[in-house]
């Protein structure tokens, strides 16, 4: 065995052991627990059952899922609408300004997102910075009610997840061949036509990648809706947490976690299939 291969084995092996010990094993325990029975005197009883999964098909849990899906979908659409023009402009400006803007976008990540969410509360609360400013300018006579509304939840989610949309879009817009746009214009296409028939189809992989990177975390982030929305509606994350911490129903909580993972895996598979389809579509277009 040579030195190089030993190093390679170590470099590949140590993260694998790490993942196996702290991700795969705990997850397998979750999967196992999801088929066991709740034990009010302890944690679980070793009786195999499918009851936990059956219980998930209740109107309440479906409503919980719908709440989460609507929130995640809304966030994805809003971030896309905001990020696309921004990423587009980013590819067309002076390189130094572009680098500066990219750095500005990364800087908030140096602070925990939980702390940034608390900062939003300070901004939006009835006697917060925004309301104090608007009141002192005489623009409003009563403080605006922003905190603990859906608006606040969407602002919080969009704010936190926007960079995950911008970066993939920026990457795919950067690869866009300008000559195709020029050619289309030369042939008499309007700006709208150029956008919908050239730019949009060619950046579709970026849109799909960005949407996945926003949608999946938005499904699981429950502390932002809790803190900014006043915890008035229950999301999948809250549901899972309550099973573990309130009722001590670890099997049901595990089953809900497994369902959430399955949902995400299906979305990822859909993402891979649709990107591949887009790519093969490209090839045909070129041909």
């Amino acid at each position: 065995m040579t030195r190089g291969s030993r190093f390679r084995n170590f470099a590949i092996g140590s993260p694998m052991v790490w993942i196996a010990v702290f991700v795969v094993v705990p997850y397998l325990i979750v999967v196992l627990f999801s088929f066991l029975t709740r034990n009010p005197e302890g944690i679980v009883t070793w009786i195999l059952t499918l009851e936990n999964y059956r219980e998930l098909f209740s109107p309440v849990f479906l409503k919980v899922c719908m709440n989460s899906l609507v929130l995640a979908l809304g966030t994805t659409v809003l971030t896309l609408l905001l990020a696309y023009p921004f990423a587009f402009i980013l590819t067309r400006i002076d390189e130094n300004i572009r680098r500066f803007l990219l750095v500005l976008m990364i800087i908030p990540f140096w602070t925990s997102s939980l702390i940034r969410t608390y900062a939003l509360i300070i901004l939006f609360k009835a006697n917060g910075l925004l309301n104090t400013f608007l009141l002192s300018m005489g623009l409003i006579s009563e403080p605006l009610s922003i905190l603990y509304t859906e608006t606040a939840v969407f602002i919080g989610l969009v704010y936190t997840l926007l960079p995950f949309m911008i970066l993939p879009l920026y990457a795919s817009l950067l690869k866009l061949d300008r000559r195709l746009m020029e050619a289309a214009r030369d042939l008499g296409a309007t700006s709208r036509h150029v956008f919908f028939h050239i730019v949009l189809p060619l950046t579709l992989p970026g849109i799909i990648a960005g949407s996945t990177m926003v949608f999946l975390p938005a499904l699981g982030l429950f502390y932002i809706p809790d803190l900014l929305g006043g915890a008035r509606s229950m999301l999948i994350g809250n549901f899972i947490k309550n099973q573990f911490l309130t009722t001590g129903n670890w099997p049901l909580g595990s089953a809900a976690s497994v369902m959430l993972t399955l949902l995400m895996v299906m979305l990822l598979i859909w993402f891979f299939i649709s990107t591949r389809r887009v790519h093969s579509g490209d090839m045909e277009a070129v041909r």
Binding site: V60, V64, N67, S233, N242
Partner: peptide, 8 residues
């Protein structure tokens, strides 16, 4: 169960 119903 009722808590979940209240919150949905």
């Amino acid at each position: 169960k009722y808590w979940e119903m209240l919150k949905t």
